[in-house]
Amino acid sequence: MSKKLGKMLAETISSLFKKPATSSYPFKKREIHKHYNGKVAYIKEKCVGCNMCVRNCPAKAIFITKIADKQFEATLHLDRCIFCSQCVISCKFGALKNTNEFELATGDKSKLVVKL
């Protein structure tokens, strides 16, 4: 074990000529792979209104309302959602699924409650 002064010198100097590791995010979007837990998508036709997703949601973020016979509507509170996708697992009928959508920030609080 030899002690050296300035062990990182070579690495830093070579970094001078490298491209920075920083990703210039809003200008250049990262590629999101398909398993990403983004905003949940809702397939109306498949929903039977069993409410398992509502019961299991740890953050009380999703609500299913009946609008007519065998017709349902889902409301998602994005400000509460923790993107665990428990609802997707809980749904035995495949009415909920994950999407890659992750840019959900907004300055307007009212936009955080969305009808799916």
Binding site: S15, L16, P20, S24
Partner: peptide, 11 residues
């Protein structure tokens, strides 16, 4: 800028 470049940042 040089400090950042050496740390592989943008600066």
């Amino acid at each position: 800028k040089v400090y950042a470049k050496m740390q592989n940042r943008m600066g």
